[in-house]
Design a protein around this nucleic acid. Structure first.
Length: 641
RNA sequence: GCCGAUGUAGCUCAGUGGUGGAGCGGCUGAUUCGUAAUCAGCAGGUCAUGGGUUCGAAUCCCAUCAUCGGCUCCA
């Protein structure tokens, strides 16, 4: 047997190492820097720890914290360190699971008394001891019987153990701590440099609300202190942008105990934003061949029995109300109404496609614990639309919807998004309604549509609902956070249930395809998202107040008033602050209100018949003719800046 | 709905069993001021709601409602 092994690096280089060489040896051979920053290895696509032996002939990549997989190893080990600390402080604690997540890690514990924020500090201190002890992290392979004995006092671990198919399992040890874990992990606990525990919350064991509630501690860790500080700064930035806070401070909306949780009151300023969004939405839909319809807020329960919603979603619908001895429901969605309208006359193949949009207000019962500002409410207005088309029109319609969706996103300043196509699980075709060929055609129409538009997307196999494939777009906002954006859902079910038809060229009835789609989601959620995206500083076209006219003393008030009138006549939205306050005070207030422009009017401006322009966040732009400022402002409005 | 925390003036918060406070905001007055807070005075509270313990409750106990962080859920 040769005493050397060879591995290939990502850049194509081949490297010769002693047989038995580990990832750590490899990193050392490449560079001292890599040796310091290495956290794991990807060998032929499989994650390995740095202490594991490298297979001969493998394609290997040394992972650092900068690789997503490397980060996960780093965080996973930090989770173990936290568990070790918790075990030291709370003897008898039962361990749940402790994985890495998107931006950090957590570990679930079953403890008699829940953790308090002060406990987190104690646990951090104990973690620091684990860190400085720099325990080597070792792995051993046990057969299940040995593992059962090892974890005899850890019922949650025993449960996990029974679900593992292999005959053997791996256990990772660091100091006195050991955990059932697939790994991999860092070579020792000293590798983790900077960590912080962020929050504690209840979480059901295995996410099942019928199982015990465990205490989950979330945390994050980084190799560099500056990265940890940046992480904390980002959390604070998110707090600063919270639409609930900004919504109150900027007088946009309110929610009242007296009226009920999850029910939104739009104040004039928030109402303005919503109105502007809605008007823009209507105009764009008209341009693209949509008709706009209206439907009632309540209807007989039978309608939702036919649609199937009553069976599926009874628990999140409000109780029926009795009207003349018949049961009526507050509508949780608009689609049955649009279907009734469709069926109000015989449709010809020549009528299709029909595109009907509605800003439809719906009510859904959301459990009390999930309500959240504008983002999760009990009454909301969907920017709903239903398209009814022939199967051969599906692809074109999908292209049209995606194009509209992306146009709308761009118009509101979202340039970063990702797309998912949800299709059937081919292993379980029986779960889906509709013929195979209908599904095949629809799925390939969606694929073709995205191909035509040159879009990149992920495929979510088995993610489709039982009634049809879908396209979902996730937006990333200014902080890089994901938001649910446009959704496009093909539906084979409702046309069937309502027996919708159109007369074909062959003079026989055919089944139309139905597409549900929303581009903004709901007005509540969308405006809430906009507030956070722009941190409350809305662009000109969406700003309820665009210009604050600020006279320096009483002497300039009448001139300032004329300036304001002129702006208003040009269709801009000015406000005059003629209060008896110093100019610094008025400016400060206008800045806090996030008004895009301030026009400061002193004696100098009156004498010169000019205005001094100040831009939000930027400061003094100097003197301008009023006409010049108006041109600038109008351009900004038109460009959606 | 579940676990935990919280609820005091419009807002942010102090007040741990003995006569409810501050700053900001509001109102009034003075000041007439040049790019992020002028000064003074005044008003403003069923201490979330309901019950209980106590001579006495913002404070201790119970219930309810709501909010916050998560979990679960989201047609």
């Amino acid at each position: 047997m040769a005493d050397k092994v060879h591995v290939s690096l990502p850049n194509g280089d081949r490297l010769e190492l002693e047989r038995g060489a580990t990832g750590l040896d490899l990193a050392r051979a490449v560079s001292p820097r890599l040796e310091r920053s290495a956290v794991g290895v990807l060998a032929d696509g499989k994650l390995k720890g740095l202490r594991e032996e490298l297979p001969d002939g493998a394609d290997v990549k040394v992972l650092t914290f900068d690789d997503p997989e490397g980060r996960r190893i780093y965080w996973h080990t930090t989770a173990h360190m936290m568990a070790q600390a918790v075990c030291r402080l709370y003897p008898g604690v039962l361990l749940g699971i402790g994985p890495s997540v998107e931006d950090g890690f957590y570990y679930d514990f079953d403890v008699t008394t829940p953790f308090s924020p002060e406990d987190l500090e104690r646990i951090e201190k104990a973690m620091a001891e684990v860190q400085s002890a720099d325990y080597p992290i070792t792995v051993e392979v046990l057969d299940k019987e040995e593992a059962r004995r090892l974890f005899k006092d850890q019922p949650y671990k025993l449960e996990l153990l029974e679900e593992i198919d292999d005959e053997t399992v791996t256990v990772f040890r660091q100091g006195e701590f050991y955990d059932l874990c697939a790994g991999p992990h860092l070579p020792s606990t000293g590798v983790v440099k900077h960590f912080k525990l962020l929050s504690v919350a209840g979480a059901y064991w295995r996410g099942d609300e019928k199982r015990p509630m465990l205490q989950r501690i979330y945390g994050v860790s980084y190799p560099e202190k500056s990265e940890l500080l940046e992480h904390v700064r980002k959390i604070e930035e998110a707090r600063r942008r919270d639409h609930r806070r900004l919504g109150r401070e900027l007088d946009m909306f309110s929610i009242h105990d007296e009226a009920g949780a999850g029910l939104v009151f739009w104040h004039p300023k928030g109402g303005f934003i919503r109105e502007t969004v809605e008007n823009f939405w209507r105009k764009e839909h008209r341009k693209r061949g949509y008709d706009i319809v209206y439907s009632p807020h309540i209807a007989k329960i039978d309608l939702w029995k036919i649609s199937g919603h009553w069976d599926w979603y009874k628990d999140s619908m409000y109780s029926p109300m009795d009207i003349d001895g018949l049961e009526y429901l507050l509508k949780p969605m608009n689609c049955p109404f649009h279907i009734l309208m469709y069926k109000s006359q015989t449709r010809s193949y020549r009528d299709l496609p029909l595109r009907w949009g509605e800003l439809g207000t719906v009510y859904r019962y959301e459990r009390s614990g999930v309500l959240h500002g504008l983002l999760r409410v009990r009454g909301f207005t969907q920017d709903d639309a239903h398209l009814f088309c022939r199967p051969d029109q599906l692809e074109d319609e999908i292209v049209g919807v995606i194009d509209l969706a992306l146009f709308m996103m761009r118009s509101f300043g979202y340039s970063d998004y990702s797309i998912m196509l949800s299709v059937r699980d081919l292993q379980h075709k029986e779960k889906y309604i509709g013929d195979d060929s209908v599904w095949d055609n629809a799925e390939s129409a969606l694929v073709a549509a995205m191909g035509r538009m040159g879009l990149e997307y992920r495929i979510g196999e088995g993610e489709a609902k039982f009634y049809g494939p879908a396209i979902d777009i996730t937006l990333n906002d200014a902080l890089g956070r994901g938001w649910q954006g446009p959704t496009i859902q093909v539906d084979f079910n409702l046309p069937e249930r309502f027996d919708m038809t159109y007369m074909g060229e062959d003079n026989r009835p055919h089944r139309p395809v139905m597409i549900h789609r929303t581009v903004l989601g709901s007005m509540e959620r969308f405006v809430g998202g906009l507030i956070e995206h722009y941190a409350g500083a809305m662009p000109m076209w969406l700003s309820p107040v665009q210009v604050k006219v600020l006279p320096i003393t009483e002497k300039q008030v009448s001139y300032a008033h004329r300036v304001k009138e002129t702006l208003a006549e040009r269709g801009l939205r000015p406000e005059l602050d003629a209060r008896n306050e110093k100019i610094g005070y008025k400016i400060r207030q206008a800045e806090l209100e996030k008004v895009p422009y301030m026009l400061i009017i002193g004696q100098k401006e009156v004498d010169a018949n000019m205005v001094a322009v100040r831009k939000r966040h930027e400061g003094d732009l100097g003197l301008m003719e009023l006409g010049e400022f108006i041109k600038r402002a109008e351009k900004e409005v038109a460009d959606h800046m």
